[in-house]
Amino acid sequence: MLFALICKDRPGALQIRLDTRPSHLAWLQELNEAKKVAFAGPFLDDDGKPEGSLVVVEADDKAEAEAIAARDPYAGAGLFESVEVRAWNWVVNKPAA
């Protein structure tokens, strides 16, 4: 089952994002190698600067998706003001299995 991790950055925390980005990308690569991530990327503000993240992961249930979200280095660094975990159904333009 797919889950969307909808993460909103704390105001004024861009430097935390920049400093933590290498470990965040390594974490995403590990998820990708384990076939646990469908896609991911930042939300951008009106100036094109990152202000949050959308990560869609494969998990057995919401508890597993929440555990995945908790291991994000951005979460560990205190970047996020909020993280919402929602079950999600990919309908249009889903890659072939």
Rank of each mutant, 00 (worst) to 15 (best):
M1T: 05
L2I: 00
I6D: 11
R10T: 01
P11W: 07
Q15L: 14
Q15C: 05
Q15D: 14
I16R: 11
R17G: 02
R17C: 09
T20F: 13
R21Y: 13
P22K: 13
A26G: 06
A26C: 04
A26Y: 11
W27R: 07
Q29R: 15
Q29T: 12
E30D: 14
L31Q: 06
A34G: 07
K35C: 00
K35P: 00
K35L: 01
K35Q: 09
V37G: 03
A38K: 09
A38W: 07
F39N: 08
F39L: 13
A40Q: 09
A40E: 06
G41C: 13
P42C: 13
F43Q: 10
F43K: 08
L44F: 14
D45C: 06
D45I: 07
D46E: 09
D47N: 14
D47M: 04
K49C: 08
K49E: 10
G52H: 08
S53P: 11
S53W: 11
S53Q: 12
V55Y: 02
V56R: 07
V57C: 04
D60K: 15
D60Q: 11
D61F: 02
D61N: 14
K62Y: 02
K62T: 00
A63W: 09
A63C: 04
E64G: 07
R71S: 12
D72Q: 12
P73C: 09
Y74E: 13
L79I: 04
L79A: 08
F80K: 04
E81D: 15
V83I: 15
V83N: 06
E84H: 07
V85H: 00
R86V: 05
A87S: 12
A87P: 10
N89V: 08
N89L: 07
N89A: 08
W90G: 00
V91M: 06
V92T: 09
V92F: 12
K94M: 05
P95T: 01
A97D: 06
